[in-house]
Simulated scan of single mutants.
Amino acid sequence: MKSLRYIVAIADEKSITKAAERLFVAQPSLSQFLQKYESDLGCRIFQRYSKGVCLTGAGEKFVPKARKLVEMYDQMVKEMRLMCKTQKKMISFATSIFRGEIIIPELLQRFYSKNSNIVIDCHEIHPKEIERQLAKGEIDIALVVAPVDNPNICCQVVAHEEVYLAVSKSHPILEKARVNPDTNKKWIDIRDMASEKFILLENEWRLRAFSDRIFAKYGIHPSFEIASLRTTFGFAAESLGVIFCPQVYIVGVGMHSDKLQYLSIGPNGEYRDLLLAYSNRYEVLPAYIKDIVEIVTTMLRCPAS
Score class of each variant (00 low, 15 high):
Q261K: 14
Q27V: 06
I292W: 07
G42T: 02
Y282P: 08
V167R: 00
S239H: 05
K85G: 10
K78Q: 12
D182C: 06
L108M: 14
D189C: 11
L260H: 04
L134M: 03
E124Y: 03
G234E: 15
E270A: 09
D121I: 04
Q156H: 13
P181G: 08
I104M: 07
E196G: 11
Y49H: 15
P147G: 08
L82I: 12
V70P: 01
D273P: 00
L240G: 07
F98H: 10
L108H: 04
L300C: 13
G100Q: 03
T17C: 11
A146C: 07
D291Q: 13
K2S: 12
A9S: 15
P246T: 02
P286S: 02
M80S: 08
K114H: 12
S29Y: 08
S168Y: 05
S211K: 03
R213C: 09
E294L: 11
T95W: 05
Y73W: 15
E294H: 11
F24Q: 00
I104E: 03
F224R: 00
V251N: 13
Y164E: 02
L174Q: 01
S228R: 08
F24D: 04
E79H: 06
Y112D: 01
Y37K: 13
G137M: 13
L200F: 08
I199A: 11
M90F: 01
F198Y: 10
Y164I: 00
F62A: 05
Y49D: 15
A66L: 03
H160S: 12
N150R: 09
M193D: 04
K136R: 03
R110E: 05
S15E: 05
P222G: 13
L240N: 07
R44W: 14
R48T: 08
L108V: 09
